[in-house]
Amino acid sequence: MANEPHDSPKTPGRWRAFLARSREFAPVWTLLALVLFFSVYSDSFLSLENAGNILNQVALLAIMGTGITFVLLTAQIDLSVSYMATFAGVVAAYYTAAHLPQPWPIVAALLAAGALGWINGVGTARLGIPSFMVTLAMSLIASGLSLYLTRGRILFDLPPLSETLGSGRIFGVKWLVIVAALTLLIGHLVLKYTRFGRYVYMTGANPKAAELAGVNTRGVITAVMVIGALTAGLAGVVGIGRLGSATPTAFDGMLIDAIGAVVLGGTSLFGGVGGIPQTIVGLLILGVLRNGLDQVSVDIYMKTLITGIILLAALVFNILFAGRKEN
């Protein structure tokens, strides 16, 4: 922010007010542009069924992304989420195979993920290790635990609740989508309408100032790392239901997409700015892009390249629309 007094528009006209507001919504325009593009170039893209499809495809990312939003808002990062999701899925399947009565395998999975998140939090907040490094180490630990529990095998005994939530329907709607929507909703309510949520934003905006105002910033950071781990765990538990099996690498590849979706929506990597609505837009951009490219006939050797180009274009567009920070 410049120290100069801001423009206080007295006679801006509706158009300028609209433009000023639209800056905040740059990612929304990106999303609409993508939807328009694929609607024109594919005859199967624009349908109610496919819309449901897209929601279903981003559901796991959404569950994970909710926790990541919390983490990024405090200016931390969690590189272990996808591995913790895999781990939670493996734990749930492992204890189901070991005939632990339901729903204890799921409880165990969430507790295990939460415990790893707590270690992330303590490492970051108490010991002062950068979250980048703690969670990088944790990604190996989670991945290693998955491998150790499965011994490289794929587990097919899943908790029935995972099966239901992962691939069941209620009133024609996928449970998975409902779980994701609820997770996002709860995340949003916590961030916007609780004291803790305010602390999360303020800790990210200026940790030192938050501490000076009596906020227990270490506690807040520990808590968001646990939240990140719990949502990852939830993603893992319902995710195995979606895939029908728990493999020792099932969700590992989702890391970049999950963080990418959150950032794409406009949540800052530097903390304090963003939120669940932004994350939802980011998820939809990514979801529409991935889904749409499967709906148009693209040379398979070009697909990754095109995905990258469109993503870059979307980011540039976001920046152009948001107006570069003036100095």
Partner: peptide, 22 residues
């Protein structure tokens, strides 16, 4: 369709939902 899914089961699920729609 002959899209790759990189041996990744999560990608397969995504790809096939799209194929079933298309």
């Amino acid at each position: 369709d002959e899209s790759p899914a990189d041996w990744d089961v999560a990608k397969v699920a995504q790809l096939w939902e799209n194929l079933l729609n298309r």
